[in-house]
Structure formats: C-alpha cells, structure tokens
Amino acid sequence: MPTTLTAFADVTTSDSALRRFLHGLPGVDAVGLEARAASLGTRSIKTTAKAYAIDLAISMIDLTTLEGADTPGKVRALSAKAVNPDPTDRTTPMTAAVCVYPDMVATAKAALNGADVKVASVATAFPAGRAALPVKLADTRDAVAAGADEIDMVIDRGAFLAGRYLETYELIKAVKEACVRPDGSAARLKVIFETGELSTYDNIRRASWIGMLAGADFIKTSTGKVGVNATPANTLLMLEAVRDFKAQTGIQIGVKPAGGIRTTKDAIKFLVLVNETVGEDWLSNTWFRFGASSLLNDLLMQRQKLSTGRYSGPDYVTVD
C-alpha cells in the first residue's frame, strides 16, 4: 500500500531531520551498480526492436543548444530540426523538446509555431548555479513568462556538498513555485544535480531524494558542461531512486540523462536500463528524456541505414 508524500512531511521540517533521513538511505554498492549497468549494456537489440528503439529515442530527445555563441538563427535552425529531424523521411518522429537559454525561449517558441515540441529552458544561473536566490528565481520567471514549457534548474552543489541539504531543498521548492504561470498551470521542473560534481554515488542518491521530495517533475544527471556527464551507472542509480519513490508515494518522476550520449548504441543502452529498472511506464517522452545534440544525427543515420539498407554518412544529416 503506497503511502503518500505526507509520510515524508516530517523529514523536511529541519536541516537535522533531513540529514538524518538522507544519511539513513541505504549506501550504494558502487561495484555492484557499475556491474549491473555494464551487464545491461550488453543486450543485443536488432532489426524491428532496434527500429522501435531508434524512433523512441528520437522522440525522447531534448535537442539542446547551450552555447555562449547561440544566435537566433541557430535556435531557429534547431527548432526546425526538432519538428522535422529528417526531411527525406517524414515518418521520423519529432523530438520531445528543444532546450535553450532563457533569452532564446521566445525565439524557439516562435520558430516551433505550435508544433508538438516543447520548449525547455535552463534557468537558475545555469550551469554553475552560483547566483543569489532572487536572481535564480527571476531567471526562472523570465523563462516561464517567455513561454517555456519546461524549466531545467541546477541545484547549488556548493550548498549540497557543504551539507546544507535543507537549503538545497528550499531552493528547489522556491523554483518550483516560480514555475507556476498566472493561469495556475506550471512549467515542468527538471532538477539537474551535476552528478559529475557530487563525487559519490551516495551523494547522487541523496540529491535524487532531495529533488523528488521538493517536487521535481524530472531529475536530470548533468549540465553537459563538466568532464563527467551522464553515465549508465549514475542514470541507473537515479532510475532506482524514482522507482523507490513511486513505490512509496505513488508519485511518478521522470529521469533525464544529459551530456556525453552521442551514439545510437549508447542511447539504446539507456533505454534498456529504463525498461529493466522502472519498466514500460517510463518508456515515453513524458517520463524519460535524453539531453543531447549530436545524438540525433547518429540516430538519423542509423534510421536511414535500417530503412534503406545502406550505411549513411554525415553528408546526409545537418551540420549543427
């Protein structure tokens, strides 16, 4: 019998209560976790299953451009690609979203022109998260006001690593409130932990729980701006966290690995992880996303290979 989130109400009443709860979570068997992730990566997915996986992966992509050099033209080109990834094959699914900086949200929204592709915006002083709370909240409100359907926030890793868990929790709650639009609806909130900076798997599990308790709609591995991004192991760990959370509260939360996933083979490995850990409930772009840019081209080339029987090449996809 799943309890509800109220069962966890008392763990967030004080810093010490939250710390007691987080440090009471079972420790992560790092060797076992990596071995499990590696063994699930050895599945052979071929022919029709592969075609299904490729289309599913395309439909799960948050097509991302997060560069200082982003121009409106680049965002428009990316949006066009999200709607119509392969102009030579109209059966190709659309991507889930385009992911841009807050000032590009309006441009992306206009370029998508009502198509069923979401606009996700990073916020809260992405990627470092080193800004005062009012700045982070203003950043979020700006993006929501500009029309963002989804907000990708970063946690304050400094506060988290210093042990100020409640502060991290309160930040996520505050941003969650800033996601609410005047009409009462809200942008979906993805919380980025930057797993590459959290040092240990135990920390990733704790961060996942903070995020879920604070009301994240998605938990996301990383910004893509540091050396270690999404790995099968840390994604598996986060999938286990959302599985456990759903078992205890009945609330389903999405997972988004981001950064470093470049090939179809990698993407399919992640889909296997999802299916084997949390099951088919998560196998849609409502609950699982890939934060990626170059991955899409590789998926399209593999898709062309399956449909034509000929190996494709980079000349037949866009240069981003």
């Binding site: 062309q304 190996y311 494709s312 090449g313 000349d315």
Partner: peptide, 9 residues
C-alpha cells in the same frame, strides 16, 4: 556491397 553502397564512401 556494403562499402559500395555506403553513403559516406
């Protein structure tokens, strides 16, 4: 045959 039909050759 695979190399001859390969689009990137």
């Amino acid at each position: 045959p695979h190399l001859a039909s390969h689009q990137d050759v």
